[in-house]
Design a protein around this nucleic acid. Structure first.
Length: 102
DNA sequence: TCATTGACGCGTG
DNA sequence: CCACGCGCCAATG
């Protein structure tokens, strides 16, 4: 069965090791979908219940968490990252330290 | 078919 | 650091 775009994306996200993060653009590139960073966000928004995809390890290229600061999703992502030792300072991650480099 | 929309990214000032 | 603009492209109505 030929993998769909979303399946490729999930595959890449699943490969991000705990304690590391990747940007939407990076995930798009690695999934063979260059310049479709926005599509990555959509794909993650459609994750079925009970999945095991670490969507929270995907953030903006700037290190910013994509959700509005203070929102429930924002807080959930922040704590999930911090649980893995990823520091979130002022709504952002220090990419220089936590960026996933395969 | 055209217009709008986004969990984006990059350049300018 | 902030504001703005523009490119990008699949999905949606």
């Amino acid at each position: 069965m030929e993998p769909t775009r979303e399946q490729k994306i999930w595959q890449v996200v699943l490969a991000i090791p705990p304690g590391h993060v990747a940007s939407y653009g990076q995930v798009a590139d690695m999934a063979g979908l260059a310049r479709q960073a926005r599509f990555v966000g959509k794909a993650l928004g459609r994750l079925p219940n009970g999945h095991s995809v670490p969507w929270f390890r995907v953030i903006r290229n700037t290190g910013q968490i994509a959700f509005q600061e203070g929102s429930e999703t924002f807080e959930r992502q922040k704590s999930l990252l911090e649980n893995e030792g990823v520091e979130v300072i002022n709504g952002r991650v220090a990419m220089s330290r936590f960026r996933w480099r395969p």
